[in-house]
Computed example of a mutant assay.
Amino acid sequence: MIESGTLFIVATPIGNLEDITHRALRILGEVDLVAAEDTRHSQKLLQHYSIATRLISLHDHNEAQRSKQLIEKLTQGENIALISDAGTPLISDPGYGFVNQCRMAGIKVVPLPGPCAAITALCAAGLATDKFKFEGFLPVKAMAKQQALQKLLVETMTTVFYESPRRVVDTVKQVITELGSEREMVLAKELTKTFETFHSGTAQACLNWLEADTNHQRGEFVLMVAGEKPNQSEVPAEAINLLKLLMNELPLKKASAITAEQFGLKKNQLYQLGLEL
């Protein structure tokens, strides 16, 4: 039995329809209404699982108006599930304004965890995951995209982007221009689907792969750009040796802190170096 007047944020499959939790299916079947980004798209998911709950649209173009209508229903005791076309709602998808207003109105908001393309791609990419940045979609305009990528010149964390098939080649070319042809990156496409593909290498190698076959450019992409690697030449050999010794006995974070204090270096720099070692 679910509490009346609750908004549920429900993650849905990003490709493979089996990637949905039992709890998500139960909630989708029990709520009074499902607010979806594209009702025609989401209807296929509900039909697949024989869920008859009524759908209503909530997308970028009607969110302001629709939010008022849905909040009124929630305050009257109806339960509503919010879903996006795929993955976790609000992550580069509509819904922020609606959820924010629900919180301000004192409406209970309950998240149901599940698929997210960024996390799905990152966990299998082989890039550093101790820290990462999620940037969503890069700007469409060339100057804004250039400025966004320039910020990664000294970024040591892995950065995750979403990209469309028609812009992916241009984006990788700009990565080469701004960050260099040797910057490591991973392209993930068609996640959880039949033709799921991961391609990793230098930015130039990834561009070559994309341009080698137009089929490589099809599907929605997650682009993951490796962080700038610490320059070992800036770290004394004695510090590197001590770090290696300590890493055999202690967690990397502790080993980095001790080495940094001993040689007057930055802990983050040594931590990144430890990951490379």
Rank of each mutant, 00 (worst) to 15 (best):
R218G: 04
F132W: 01
E135V: 02
G95H: 03
T197L: 01
I107M: 05
L242P: 07
N268M: 12
D38I: 07
L55M: 04
V109G: 08
D130R: 12
A205R: 11
V160D: 11
Q204H: 09
E276S: 12
T53S: 02
P251F: 06
Q204E: 15
E135D: 11
P165R: 08
M185V: 07
P89W: 10
C102L: 11
V235E: 06
T192H: 05
T53I: 02
L252N: 03
Q43G: 02
Q150W: 05
L210Y: 06
K173S: 13
N268C: 10
A142H: 15
E163F: 02
Q232T: 15
I258K: 00
K73C: 04
L223R: 05
I56T: 14
T129M: 13
H216I: 04
F98A: 06
I27D: 01
P115L: 00
T12D: 05
T88D: 07
S84N: 09
T202P: 10
N215H: 12
A255N: 05
F134R: 03
Q147E: 11
L152D: 09
L149W: 07
A237Y: 14
L74M: 07
S164A: 15
L127I: 02
D130S: 14
I71H: 00
Q47H: 10
L28T: 07
E182S: 12
M143W: 03
G97V: 01
V110S: 06
N215I: 11
Q43Y: 08
M247E: 11
G15C: 01
T39Q: 08
T197D: 04
S200H: 11
V186I: 10
L82K: 03
K68H: 09
H216D: 09
G264I: 05
L223C: 10
N268D: 12
S84V: 08
P230C: 00
F195E: 06
H41W: 11
E182D: 14
G201I: 03
K133G: 04
V154Y: 14
N62H: 05
K108N: 13
E182H: 09
Q150F: 04
H199G: 01
E190T: 07
Q43N: 10
E63G: 03
L277D: 08
G106S: 10
L46E: 05
V154I: 14
G201A: 03
L275N: 12
T159I: 05
P89V: 08
R54A: 15
H22D: 14
V154H: 15
L70N: 00
H48G: 02
Y271G: 02
S164I: 07
K73E: 04
A257G: 04
T192F: 02
N100R: 15
S84E: 08
L152H: 06
I240L: 15
G114S: 09
E228T: 15
H48T: 06
C206K: 03
P113K: 13
A148Y: 03
P111S: 08
I20N: 10
F98N: 04
T88F: 00
P94M: 01
G126H: 01
E261I: 00
G95T: 01
V225Y: 02
Y271F: 15
I14Y: 01
G106D: 07
L33W: 04
A203G: 06
E261R: 06
M1V: 14
C206Y: 02
V160P: 08
L74P: 00
I91Y: 01
L252I: 12
G106E: 09
G106Q: 10
E220C: 03
L179T: 06
G219P: 14
L55E: 04
N62A: 00
T21K: 04
Q47V: 02
R23G: 08
A52Q: 13
I258G: 00
